[in-house]
Design a protein around this nucleic acid. Structure first.
Lengths: 223, 223
DNA sequence: TAATGTTTCGAACGAACGTTCGACCAAATC
DNA sequence: GATTTGGTCGAACGTTCGTTCGAAACATTA
């Protein structure tokens, strides 16, 4: 019974997608454990038992949402990256692709970012695999960037995961009517990652003793 | 019955803390909705009904964990910041303080980062208040930094929330035996935020047409 | 020792959970 | 017209959930 509800007269495969859309919204609102199959039934207008014609279990619903979202993102990224060689531009394309999809499918992305541990067994392995692949693409981009620019020997794992952190954290604060959209946001985050917030020439000032005496001089992070 | 279990012979207020520690661990492992009071009872060794002598409801357990953690972090931060005037050093202290507590209390921090929406009513308002206070401190630091260094007019909300994203995302990937500890991590993230990953003088290359033609020239983000 | 207050817990409450089953119905095939 | 097929759903299954309650056990004071 959600909004205009024309779940009938849909081809079978489209009805599964229709169910997954409402499921993603429900999971995004209440979390995977907090949302019940009955919630999904209510929001999609499909009866409780009717859902099990399309889906084997609650876990499978989450799995289908996650795997479909990741596959789409990776495919789009590879498509956008094709033919582009300049590393910093490749990085910008990655950020842009991620955030564009993020803001276009906020429910699915929230489910991706938030329900990392919920899957088990084969479902879990399957999602982990494509996630690792996605991560690998970004690490490659970063390595090329560093090789070209002779940047600091920053641990690539930390750099890349920090960048993912910036981006994925968005689901906790972004308000569409208040905050910038994908273009502005991805420009800002690319700049922040490539240049830093403060890219003045003079080095950031030396560290002094902190109040609790626990913050030491800034040091380059070793690999 | 977890590990060495001396929950008896504890003063009443200490036993509450003892329960909250085990509850935080349980919430961190299974999520707030996924964890049951029975799980907390099992892991703490306190009987199911016995828990309700110390606590009014499941929500209150989550509330007590969150409010205590935030209060401690803010108090430590204000303490560390006292007497330090240089904005970039203040920022480093903030990052260091956040990550130090993060890695020392990973369960509590995971609960903080992950269970943002679970609370309701007064509990929710109370936590939101101190969270806003913490956020405000960081925005002030950033504004001072920008004023001093004449950095780009980067939206402070985006800059600060991105920094929080970098840091809070850690709970999804950090492995204590594999990844750097708080000092190295906070240095890396402070550098990344202040300098950017690539702080070479020559500007990051101009943007060309992207594969899908949707990535435009980098632009400064307006306030 | 009696009386009072603090702390503990087994047993049970009603509600909600994920899942299953068999009956039903409409459209397609014979 | 009879039969099969694809799709739907009400009702119920056994289990687990958060919470309550009254009785014990223990410690403290009178």
């Amino acid at each position: 019974m959600s909004q205009t509800d024309n779940s009938d007269q849909l081809a079978s495969s489209q009805k599964l997608e229709y169910i997954l859309r409402h499921a993603a919204q429900t999971f995004a609102e209440k979390g995977y454990e907090g949302a019940s199959i009955r919630d999904i039934s209510r929001s999609s207008g499909v009866s409780l038992s009717g859902l099990y014609y399309y889906v084997k279990s609650k876990q499978e619903i989450l799995y289908l949402i996650q795997i479909h979202t990741f596959r789409t993102i990776v495919a789009r990224l590879q498509d956008s990256l094709r033919g582009v060689r300049d590393p910093s531009q490749r990085l910008r394309i990655f950020v842009r692709n991620h955030l564009e999809y993020f803001l276009q499918h906020p429910m699915e992305m929230k489910v991706l970012a938030h329900e990392d541990d919920a899957l088990e067994g084969v479902y879990r392995r399957d999602v982990a695999e494509i996630k690792r692949k996605y991560y690998g693409i970004v690490v490659e981009i970063f390595e090329a960037l560093r090789a070209e620019r002779r940047g600091p020997a920053l641990n690539p794992r930390i750099a890349v995961l920090s960048l993912f952190g910036m981006m994925n954290w968005i689901h906790t604060w972004h308000q569409p009517h208040r905050d910038p959209q994908a273009e502005e946001l991805s420009n800002a985050m690319s700049e922040m990652f490539l240049h830093g917030v403060m890219s003045n020439r003079r080095p950031v000032s030396r560290q002094l003793r902190s109040g609790r005496g626990s913050v030491n001089a800034a040091a380059r992070v070793a690999v």
